[in-house]
Amino acid sequence: MPQSRAVVPTPHASRYLQQLCKHWAHRFDTTFTDSDGRIALPLGETRLKASTDALTIDLTAEDAANLSGLRDVVVRHVDRFAFRETLRYEWTEAAPGAREAKEPSQ
């Protein structure tokens, strides 16, 4: 499954994490604390982690098209909550299976 990650510098990471999770909690399977969140959307799964200076967003989807759509939806919503600042998203992508252990060749 394709995966993507962005580490978004902001001192308001916990606030945005909680707002996003609360926003989607009425429609999707959502769990969160002030520092971690998980949202199961139809396009894929979003995992969030807040630190004092950044919001880390990890996305996983069934295919590249869903991953692209999921990224767009998440960014639009976080930007809506962060209207007082301009956030920078620098996405890195992992190839399917890149995080799985590979068997040693003999």
Rank of each mutant, 00 (worst) to 15 (best):
L20W: 00
R38A: 11
V75P: 00
L43W: 04
D29P: 02
K102L: 13
L17P: 01
D63V: 07
K49I: 04
R27H: 13
T10Y: 07
D29E: 15
G37E: 03
V74Q: 00
H23C: 01
G97Y: 10
A13F: 04
Q106V: 14
S4L: 12
T56G: 04
P96Q: 13
E93I: 09
A95S: 14
R99A: 13
T56Q: 13
G44S: 12
D36E: 15
T46G: 02
V73T: 12
S35M: 05
I57Y: 03
R47C: 07
L55F: 02
E85M: 07
A13M: 08
E90I: 03
D34Q: 12
R15P: 02
I39L: 15
S14C: 07
W24V: 01
V78L: 11
D36I: 05
L55E: 00
D53N: 08
H26C: 06
R27Q: 14
P9L: 08
R84E: 10
D79G: 07
E62W: 03
S51M: 04
T60A: 15
D34L: 04
E90Q: 11
P9D: 07
R71T: 13
L48Q: 06
A98C: 08
E90D: 14
T56H: 05
V78I: 15
Y16C: 01
R5N: 10
P11R: 13
F81L: 06
Q3P: 02
E100N: 12
K49R: 14
Q3R: 15
L43G: 01
V78A: 02
G44L: 01
D29F: 05
L59R: 00
L67R: 01
A82G: 09
L41D: 05
L87A: 06
P96A: 13
R47G: 01
R71H: 02
P42Q: 02
F83P: 01
K49F: 08
L43E: 12
T60G: 09
V75M: 12
R71N: 06
S51Y: 05
D79K: 13
R80K: 15
A94F: 12
G69A: 11
R38G: 02
